[in-house]
Amino acid sequence: MSQQIGKEKQNIYPLVSSDKEDIAKPKGDRFLKIIVICGVLLFVFSLYQLNIDYTNLWVGTIEFFTMLGEMFPPDFSEWQYVIPAAIESLQVAILGTVIAVVISLVLAFLAAENITTNKLFARTIKGFATLMRVIPTIVWALIFIVAVGLGPLPGVLAIAIHSLGMLIKVFAQSVEEMDGGKIEALKAAGANWFQIIAQGVIPTVFTALLSWTILRLEIDIGESTILGLVGAGGIGWELTRAMRTYDFNSALFITIVIFVMIFSVEMISNRLKLKV
């Protein structure tokens, strides 16, 4: 340290020093350059492959704005169908999320590497979680519709399964990030597995779990509004119906309802996040 200080002092105004020699300019970040070049090439290639019909793009854009114009004013007349459908979407999201949270609470503790009873078991649960998480909710909905028929039930199941996949992953991660010393201390005190979880793990990760749950509910309310598009109940179905019959004024009303739903959930969850 003292040597270094001595050197710095000398370097204040070096009269004759090796500092005179110019150093070569570094070539810059190769990796970043390669990524950028690959990205540009992929973009051009993708655009070429998509083979977008640009006259259609132009005509369609004009049509889109004409349609937007026709959508006004929104037609509120069918509110007695639309509002219950919106509530149904909300209920589908709440129920699906609650089911996912309850099941994932059990499975996440088994899947977390630091407190699991069996490593192989933990990996298996995580593997299934990945499968559930990667398949989109709406694909799950399609599968459940084939199995149990149309209506809100396949929607609830689809949301529950997809959320379960994500919640197991993030809950287990929160538990794994926990300070190992705390678990050790409880083990040293002679606590058994359930006691460690109830007294050590849950109090520590509670806020993390709560904020993930709120985030998931927020996402699920967004997803439940679109499930109706494939016949799994809720407001999405009303929108599909309105668009199919070219009833654009009703469609605008339904879109506004969906916007208000998701927007107010975002506002509420922002408030809750501040409190947590």
């Binding site: 710095e8 370097n11 204040i12």
Partner: peptide, 8 residues
């Protein structure tokens, strides 16, 4: 930079 000893 040379004056403040940071040319390198």
């Amino acid at each position: 930079l040379e004056r403040v000893g940071l040319k390198q």
